[in-house]
Design a binder for these strands. Structure first.
Lengths: 129, 129
DNA sequence: TTTGTTGCTATACAAAAGGATACTGGTATC
DNA sequence: GATACCAGTATCCTTTTGTATAGCAACAAA
C-alpha cells in the first residue's frame, strides 16, 4: 500500500526525461527514422525516396528532408544534369543514431511477435498499424 | 555521381522500417516515454505523475495511461481508501524497453552537448525545445 | 508539338495531437 | 457550511501533422 510514500531522487530521472525529450524532438514525426533507414542503403534521389517510402507526399518529404539537413543527419547535393539531379546522403553524424535505431528496430520485431501470440490466445491487445 | 545507380537489397531495410514504425506507433506522442521513466522510481498516483511531468493536463495524462495499460506497460490499481487511491505501476514487460530508453537518453545527452558547442561556434543549428 | 520526368512549391483541406478551463462526486478538514 | 483533495471527464480550441491536387521550369524523347 501507500503508507510509505515513495520519495523520488528526482535528479537522474529528470535528466533522463529531458534527454529523451530532446531525442523525441529531433526524431519527431512519422517519417524521420524511416527516411534515415532508407538512406542507409545508399544515396537516394527525391523520387527514389518517395517510391521507397510509399504514401509519403512530396510536401512532407521535402519538409522532413529539410529538418534532417538542419540537424546534420543528411546532406543535399545538386548535380547540373537535366533534368536536375538531387542526391540525399547520410552524414557521419547520422551514424550516432545507429544504436537507437537498432534497439527500436529489435524492440519492434519482438513486440510484433508478442502481439501475434497474444491475439492467437485471444487476449485483448492494442492493434498494430 | 549516379552513373551506377544503387540497387537496394530492400529486404532487410523494409523489415527494419516496419519494425521501427511499430515501435514509433506504440511509443507515439510526447508523453509515453516520460511517463514510463517517471514510473521507474516507483509506483505513482495520478496527481504525483501530473506534478512530476509538469505541464501535462489531466486529459492527456489519462489518455496516455490508458494506452500504456492496453499495451501492458503499466498496471492500474485502485485502493478503496477515501478519497479513492489509484496507483500506477510498471509491468515486467515494460522492462523490455530499457535498452531503447537508455540509447535514446544517451543520444539526447550527447546531442545537446553537441548543439551547445555548435552554437558557441556560431554555426547555424536547429534549436532544442 | 505533345508528352513525360525531376524536384520541388502552393493551396486547400482533414485528421490527430495537445492544451485550457471548468466541473463532478465523494470525503475530509477548517 | 465553506473549502480543499483526489481521480478523473467534458467541452472547446489551437497547433501540428498529413493528404490531395495542381502547377512550374527545364529539358528530353516520341
Amino acid at each position: 500500500m501507500i503508507n510509505t510514500p515513495i520519495v523520488h531522487s528526482g535528479e537522474a530521472c529528470t535528466k533522463s526525461i529531458a534527454a529523451i525529450r530532446d531525442t523525441l524532438y529531433v526524431l519527431s514525426g512519422k517519417w524521420k527514422l524511416p527516411i534515415i533507414i532508407a538512406l542507409k542503403s545508399g544515396p537516394s534521389r527525391f523520387k527514389d525516396l518517395q517510391r521507397q517510402l510509399q504514401d509519403i507526399t512530396p510536401k512532407i518529404l521535402s519538409k522532413e528532408l529539410k529538418e534532417l539537413e538542419l540537424n546534420e543527419f543528411v546532406t543535399r547535393t545538386v548535380y547540373a544534369t537535366s533534368p536536375v539531379t538531387v542526391e540525399y546522403n547520410l552524414t557521419k553524424y547520422s551514424e550516432t543514431l545507429n544504436k537507437v535505431i537498432i534497439e527500436m528496430s529489435d524492440w519492434g520485431l519482438q513486440h510484433r511477435k508478442r502481439m501475434m501470440n497474444n491475439s492467437r490466445k485471444e487476449k485483448k491487445s492494442i492493434s498494430l498499424q
